[in-house]
Design a protein around this nucleic acid. Structure first.
Lengths: 356, 356
DNA sequence: GCGCGTGGCACACCTCTATTT
DNA sequence: TAAATAGAGGTGTGCCACGCG
């Protein structure tokens, strides 16, 4: 039961209707709505009753217009196809609601400058009072950085030190180290990295960290650059020649890992018996892949909370360029085993992996 | 480059700033923004230039306030954890943008009436022009139906004939028939249905259709009621006693199918050699499950377009209570095979499945 | 005349209707 | 007549003034 509207062409009730009904001025109603302290309890109660009775809801539009604050956070998702960014969007949305804010979501679809312009126009029209950029690609990040708006902004991605904007992310250097350590503990020393696309901020961060770990361990760091999709993982698993010379693969997301395992399987290469695999994200379902996937878990809910917190607490905290990094966690399941001495383990077949 | 703001405490430019700069009245600017025909080309061009130059963006809040139309569609997602509803949300969002509308997303989290009240309050505050309810549970659907608001509303779910509200969905009776036919063509006649939860509108529709097909074919229709999660599928696969007497399972979504296959695997039951499986949705990744999952594909993008179309074309089309049903498609992959005569196929072990 | 509870008025930014040139 | 203007909402918020013990 929403309203007892009896009037014929009834517009939605306004604050004036409430005021009239309660026999007070609209300003008093406004104060009730804003929890102002200087009000007699009896007045407050009476007004609340009227609000309930006529089904009044404050107009966000009028509120935004008058207060010059929309209480909305613009959330732009740069790679909607990535599972991770959807999860992050939902998390941000939830966190925002907890802080009495709504979100204006926008997925960048068009490539290049046009897509960014669209996003900016949309968000500017909505006068969002903060901006959250999820899983950006590098050009998008640059464009946002360059566009000198004055909005509090947070990037949900593991940006490099060079980025002047605040960011919230899982610390991919820890993630990479976790995966590498787990492989090495199991006895692996030729590991392939199935990376995300080169224009993804997160992917380059993860790749960089992985390589750095490999370097420190004096191990080679063969690499193939993917596109996050399971189809790509499949192709690599099914056809990549370099697979022979490697005993483990670290995939930059679970979906590519899934496809990879399938692809390997078509060649008769078994996981983890022949090749071990670690994924990234801990996507829902990863625990039921065959084999259940050992993966690096990102806590998206926490990420969302942190992002919103950073945005809304920027009422003069010194969080200019703050970087918040959460710790990922290795979830050990069944896709890693000790390397199996297939063929001659050190035989250098005629493969060529992008080696740096 | 967003603005050449030189003023000190510069508010965002308003339509008046544009008008002053261009030497016209604000109304003329408004006409440009609304593509009104009666304008000299030269005037239009000049104004457009000014808009570009000072980085003007129309305020949606003011627009909504003044025109009494928010150009926003409220999208409430009832079961955020379901892959299908997320996919639908994204699709609706995209379609809405194409029609120059934004969406106000709201995920119901709290159970029961409270959750619905929250949603209604949020959407009422935003004065959305239309309402889209994705993947509702029955109580939610009832609540929305009962709440007599006047908004154009569309339900994205295969509601029964009893529902007075317009709805858009994949025709689950076709989906069920497709799956059943495929199983039967392969020679199966004892099939289990791993259903979605009993309070889900889509799940009951699918279950009902499935049972009706089984009845028509004079086959038993054993059923277990799940919760969409892969963990649930796993439990059933790993421990359900009724599994012995069945040669095929039709899961109400791919995720449960994934868990099921994993669970079966732990018992040494192989898919499709020992048991065949068909999923539902064609979730991204299903093509790389082991085995690649034969499933019933729902076209969420089309669903989103239809939903938005129904909502925005309701400018006096007779679509009161219209039902739009899209055809799902069977995607044949590798999880179905002819039934393998394990043990005595007709042996009635001591299982008891909810048999109706 | 001090404080608490209230009311008045301007303003935010656009759209629409009526009116002028 | 075609093009442009003036003015009135629509619905809140913020600031200041006012009445009452």
């Amino acid at each position: 039961m929403t309203s007892t509207a009896a009037e014929p062409d009834a517009l939605r009730p306004s604050i004036y209707d409430v005021a009239r009904e309660a026999g007070v001025s609209h300003m008093t109603v406004s104060r009730v709505l804003n929890d102002s302290p200087q009000l007699r309890d009896e007045t407050r109660r009476r007004i609340l009753d009227v609000i309930e009775a006529i089904g009044y809801h404050r107009s966000e539009a009028a509120r935004a217009l008058s207060s010059r604050r929309s209480r909305a956070i613009g959330v732009v998702v740069d790679s909607a196809e990535r599972d991770a960014s959807r999860a992050a969007l939902v998390a941000v949305q939830q966190a925002a609601r907890g802080r009495h804010h709504s979100v204006v979501p926008f997925s960048i679809t068009t490539n290049g400058q046009a897509g960014i312009d669209d996003a900016v126009a949309h968000l500017a029209a909505h006068r969002v009072d903060a901006l959250c950029l999820i899983a950006p690609r590098i050009p998008t990040l640059q464009a946002i950085t360059a566009s000198h708006h004055d909005l509090p902004t947070v990037i949900v991605a593991d940006t490099g030190d060079g980025c002047p904007l605040p960011s919230v992310a899982v610390d991919h250097s820890v993630g990479a180290a976790l995966a590498a350590r787990h492989f090495m503990d199991a006895g692996h020393h030729s590991m392939l990295h199935l990376a995300g696309p080169e224009d993804s901020v997160d992917a380059v961060s993860l790749t960089r960290s992985w390589r750095s770990v490999m370097r420190q361990s004096h191990l080679p760091a063969p690499l193939v650059v993917g596109d996050w999709s399971s189809d790509f993982g499949y192709e690599i698993g099914a056809t990549h020649p370099g697979m022979d010379s490697v005993t483990a693969v670290f995939a930059a997301n679970d979906r590519m890992a899934l496809g990879l395992i399938h692809g390997l399987w078509t060649r008769g290469i078994r996981v983890p018996a022949d090749v071990s695999v670690i994924g990234y994200d801990d996507h829902a379902g990863a625990s039921h892949y065959l084999p259940p996937l050992t993966t690096v878990r990102q806590d998206f809910d926490a990420l969302g909370c942190e992002a919103v917190h950073a945005l809304l607490s920027s009422g003069e905290g010194p969080l200019e360029g703050a970087r918040r990094r959460l710790l990922p966690r290795l979830v050990v399941r069944d896709s890693v085993a000790a390397p199996h001495p297939r063929r001659a383990p050190e035989r250098s077949t005629s493969h060529r992996l992008a080696a740096m």
